[in-house]
């Protein structure tokens, strides 16, 4: 059900044509690893995220987040 909703929304969005630019900060041990493993399993997800790898989410500074928005990010996804 949840997945259906998501894909329906995606269709709606495709019409508006807006492709957000999102910067991700991924923890090496957790989220980055999960993202790799998503790749190994060939799961598919939208190609809007660019990733900065950090050793731990604790590394992430408020400055980084603000700088990302300043540099044109429409969203910042931090993943621990």
């Amino acid at each position: 059900m949840a997945q259906e909703n998501v894909s329906m929304k995606e269709n709606d969005m495709a019409q508006t044509g807006f492709e957000p630019r999102i910067l991700g900060f991924f923890c090496h041990w957790c989220c980055y690893a999960a993202a790799d493993s998503a790749g190994v399993s060939r799961y598919q997800y939208p190609p809007n995220v660019r990733v900065v790898r950090v050793m731990c989410t604790g590394r992430i500074d408020t400055r980084f987040i603000l700088e990302a928005f300043k540099c044109g990010a429409d969203g910042v996804f931090t993943g621990g």
Binding site: A35, D36, A38, G39, V40, R42, Y43, Q44, Y45, P47, V51
Partner: peptide, 10 residues
């Protein structure tokens, strides 16, 4: 690869 080609195959 893991975070690009494999996950945006379409």
């Amino acid at each position: 690869r893991d975070q690009c080609a494999w996950v945006h195959a379409q």
